[in-house]
Amino acid sequence: MREEFAIGDSSLHRLDPRLKIVAASALSIVVAVSTRFSALGVAVGLALILLAFARLPCGAIARHLVMVNGFVILFWIILPVSVPGTPWMHIGPIPLMREGLELAARLTIKSNAIVLAFIALVSTSSVVSLGGGMNRLRLPDKLVHLLLLTYRYLFVIQEEYERLKRAAVVRGFVPKTNLHTYRTYAFLVAILFIRAAARANRVQQAMLCRGFQGRFYSLQEYAFTPKDWMWAAGLGLAVAIIGIIEWMPGPWS
C-alpha cells in the first residue's frame, strides 16, 4: 500500500490540487451519466491524453486496471445471456445477445475512462495536498482533519498488523477454513482496535499539548499560476465537448 502514482514531476503532478479535485469530479460526473459511444470514446481519449501528460509507469496502471475491472467482469458474464434481445453470436448452444453485450461494453468503457482520468488527475497528488485542497474548497474542517489523521496513522496501524501477524505465524499459525483461524483473526483485529484506541488517547494528548485548536496549518501555498489557468480552461473545454456530444443532436449521434 503506497501512493505509487503521487511520485513524479510531470505537469499534472504540479497542478493545483483544488483544480484537480474539481476537474476530476466534473469529468467523472459527465462520463457517469453519458450513454453515447461517441461521447464515451472522447472521454477515453481524454483520459489517455491526461495519462500521457502524467507520465506514469504503464505496468502499474495496467495492474490497477485489472483489479478495478473485477466488478465489471461480472456484467460481461451475466448481461449477454440474461438481457433479452437479438442474438449476435452463439457459444455452443448459448446465444449471446447484442443488447447485453452493448450494455456491458458501455459500462466497461465508462468505468475505465473514469478510473484512468482519476489516476491521472487525483492519484498524482499526495493525500496531504488533496486534504489541503479539500479544505480550501470549503469542505468541513472536521472531515479534512479526519482524512489527514486517518492517512497519518494508516501506515502505523498497518505495520502493527504486520507485526501481530508475523508473531502469529512464528507461533505456527497457518490460516485454514476453521474456527481457530477465524478466532485468531478476530483476536488480532480486536487487539489492533484496542491499541488504536490507546494510541488515539496519546495522540489526542500530544495534540492538546501542542495547542491544537481544531485547525491544521499547512505550509504549502495554494496559488493559481498561469499554467493552472491554462489547464483549467483546457479541462473545462474537454468536459464541455463530452457534454455537447452526449446531449446535442448532431452527426455524431
Binding site: 486517518t150 483485529v189 488504536a196 495522540v203
Partner: peptide, 18 residues
C-alpha cells in the same frame, strides 16, 4: 467533537487495514 477526531481517525485507519 474535536477531542474525538483523533480516535475516529485512528479507528478509521484500523478499519481500512482490517
Amino acid at each position: 467533537d474535536a477531542d474525538r477526531i483523533a480516535r475516529s481517525g485512528i479507528l478509521s485507519a484500523c478499519f481500512f487495514v482490517a
